[in-house]
Amino acid sequence: MTREEIIKEENLVYKKTALFTDKALSYCPGCGHGTVHRLILETIEEMGIQASTIGVAPVGCAVLAYEFMDIDMMQAAHGRAPALATAVKRLNPDQYVFTYQGDGDLAAIGTAETIHACNRGENFTIIFINNGIYGMTGGQMAPTTLPNMKASTCPYGRDTAMMGNPLKMTELVAQLPGTYYVTRQSVHTAGAVRKCKKAIRKAFENQKLDKGVSFVEVVSNCNSGWKMTPVQSNKWMEENMFPYYPLGDIKVPQV
């Protein structure tokens, strides 16, 4: 059987999402970022909203997200993505707008922008990747680093008496009247990926309703930063991250 005989439409079980560019992902093998990118791009493709979607990239591992997504995007200063998105959406109410932010970006330096965009009930989608560490800068402590978890700026583990406790930003924003849909997902198994896809789709669809922020946290791994293999990191995530950051919907629209 030749290569050409194999590559046929009826044999196709998986393909690159049309809205991925051909640029090789800059993420470490095993990291969840690429999967979440794919879910966002599949959602945009399936909803047919490429021409009316504007994304805002953060500072962090996903700083180059615009290199991989074939949509119009802007790159925000560290933590400021929700401020940019606020203006983009208010000035273009017919566009779909989303931010893509990591834990340092959203829950440390950008706390004010996040809380206030959520509190104003801005009508855009926030995708929040929580891997409990600063990946891009080389594994420093994040606001979401677990108690006793090691990072390069807490090499003996996070001492909560000295460094404070991990911030549950998602539970926090769920308290605000301005958030419409708040959920926590993961992408470490096929089942989790499917659930996460549904959540992201819902978070984009909600923009048609103009009811406030749709907020999707994805608890993800950072095998490089955690100094583990991808498989070990997923297991560690299940055993340590999920008890502190339980998966599931936190706030669902009341019908």
Binding site: I54, M74, A76, R80, A83, A87, V88, L91, I115, H116
Partner: peptide, 26 residues
């Protein structure tokens, strides 16, 4: 015209950044 009181000067200038990215007069 959109008029918004931001939560800080930092947020306000970044709203300008977002709006200007879209070619808007902000």
């Amino acid at each position: 015209m959109v008029v918004l009181q931001a939560e800080s000067e930092v947020a306000a200038i970044n709203m300008v950044y977002g709006g200007a990215s879209c070619g808007k007069k902000v």
